[in-house]
C-alpha cells in the first residue's frame, strides 16, 4: 500500500528497483530494453492516464468553478483555497477524520494482535477460528455494512437482544459518540482478519529458540511479549499501522450507508465531505481542493512512517 512496503518485506533477493542480474550476454541488451518498455507499457500508461493526469487536473479544477445546471466553467483563482481557511465545517471534519483513524488503528491492531497471539498455537480448532475471524473480509463491504446498519437501528437486533436482558440500548447511529463508535466497530470486524493473518505470519517467523531461551531464564509471559515478540514483529506492526491509517482515510461506503455523516457532522470524515461537496452540492472546485488536502495528508503520513521505520524498527535482515 505504501512506498516503504518495498523495504518492509522480507525480500529474498536484493531489492533494487528495476535491477536485473548483472551478468547478461551483451547482444540482448537493446532488444531487451524494447521488450522491457513493452512489458511495462500497459501499467505505466495506465498510471499516467488515471493517476498523474487526474492529479494535474485537480490542480487545474481547484482554480475553477463549474456550475452544472447553468453549464458554466469559470476561473476563480485562489477562491477555493481561501474557502479552505474560512470553512466552518472543516475543523469538525478533520476532527472526525482524526478520531476515526486513531480509534480504528488502536481497536483494529489490538484485536488483531490478541487474536493472532491466541491462535498462534497447535491445537484442534485453531484453523476453524482463523476461518471465522477472516470470513468478514470476503463478505461484500456494502452487504456487511447494511446488516450492521440493520442491527444498530433503535429498534434493531442489538437493542432487541439487550432488551431481553433488561438493558435499554442507546440509539446507536443517531447519537454522536455511539455513531462514531459504531462506524469504527463495523469497520474493525470487517477487516481485522487481514491484520490477524499478517501478524500470524510474522509470529510464525520468530525463531522458536528465542522463546525457549527466555523461558529457561524464567522470564514472565508479559516480559517475553514486550522484550521478544513485540520487537521481533515490529516491522509488521508498523506496516499494518500505516496500511490501516491510509485505509481509514478512504472509508466511504460505511459512512454513506450507516450515518450519512451524521448525527451533526460527527462522522463526516474528509472523504465523505469531499464527496458531498463535489457530487451533492456540485462544488467540484472546492472538492478538488479537499482532494489535494487528502493527498497531502497521505503523503505526510507516508514520509513520517518512512522516517520512523529507520529509527524504531528492529532490523529486518
Amino acid at each position: 500500500m505504501t512506498l516503504t512496503a518495498v523495504r518492509a518485506l522480507p525480500s529474498r533477493a536484493p531489492a533494487r528497483p528495476g535491477g536485473a542480474p548483472r551478468r547478461r550476454p551483451h547482444r540482448h541488451r537493446r532488444q531487451d530494453a524494447l521488450v522491457g518498455y513493452l512489458f511495462i507499457a500497459p501499467q505505466a500508461l495506465g498510471i499516467v492516464a488515471f493517476v498523474l493526469v487526474p492529479l494535474g487536473l485537480i490542480a487545474y479544477y481547484s482554480a475553477h468553478e463549474w456550475n452544472v445546471l447553468a453549464g458554466t466553467f469559470r476561473f476563480v483563482g485562489t477562491e477555493n483555497f481561501e474557502r479552505l481557511f474560512t470553512d466552518p465545517q472543516l475543523g469538525g471534519v478533520l476532527q472526525a477524520t482524526t478520531i476515526f483513524s486513531i480509534a480504528l488503528v488502536i481497536a483494529n491492531l489490538t484485536l488483531a494482535l490478541v487474536l493472532a497471539l491466541l491462535l498462534n498455537r497447535r491445537m484442534r480448532g485453531v484453523g476453524f477460528f482463523r476461518t471465522v475471524f477472516f470470513s468478514p473480509v470476503v463478505v461484500s463491504l456494502v452487504a456487511w455494512t447494511i446488516v450492521w446498519g440493520f442491527l444498530l437501528q433503535a429498534d434493531g437486533g442489538i437493542n432487541g437482544m439487550l432488551a431481553t436482558i433488561g438493558i435499554e440500548g442507546p440509539n446507536w447511529l443517531r447519537e454522536g459518540p455511539t455513531a462514531m463508535a459504531s462506524v469504527v466497530i463495523v469497520q474493525v470486524f470487517k477487516n481485522v482478519g487481514l491484520n490477524m493473518v499478517l501478524f500470524l505470519a510474522a509470529l510464525q517467523g520468530v525463531p522458536h529458540e528465542l522463546f525457549e531461551a527466555a523461558r529457561v531464564d524464567g522470564a514472565r509471559p508479559s516480559t517475553i511479549f514486550w522484550r521478544i515478540t513485540f520487537p521481533m514483529i515490529s516491522p509488521t506492526i508498523l506496516l499494518t499501522v500505516i496500511i490501516t491509517i491510509v485505509g481509514s482515510l478512504q472509508v466511504f461506503a460505511q459512512i454513506a450507508v450507516l450515518t450519512q455523516g451524521g448525527p451533526g457532522t460527527s462522522t463526516t470524515v474528509l472523504v465523505y465531505y469531499l464527496f458531498q461537496q463535489a457530487f451533492q452540492f456540485g462544488k467540484f472546485g472546492y472538492g478538488s481542493v479537499l482532494a489535494i488536502l487528502l493527498f497531502l495528508i497521505v503523503l505526510v503520513l507516508t514520509i513520517v512512517q518512512w522516517m520512523l521505520r529507520r529509527k524504531w524498527v528492529f532490523h529486518e535482515n
Partner: peptide, 19 residues
C-alpha cells in the same frame, strides 16, 4: 437557492435537537 447544501447544513445542526 443552493438547496442541497442548506438542506445538509441545517440537518447537521438539527440532529442535536433530536436528543
Amino acid at each position: 437557492e443552493g438547496s442541497a447544501e442548506i438542506q445538509q447544513a441545517v440537518r447537521a445542526q438539527l440532529d442535536a435537537l433530536w436528543t
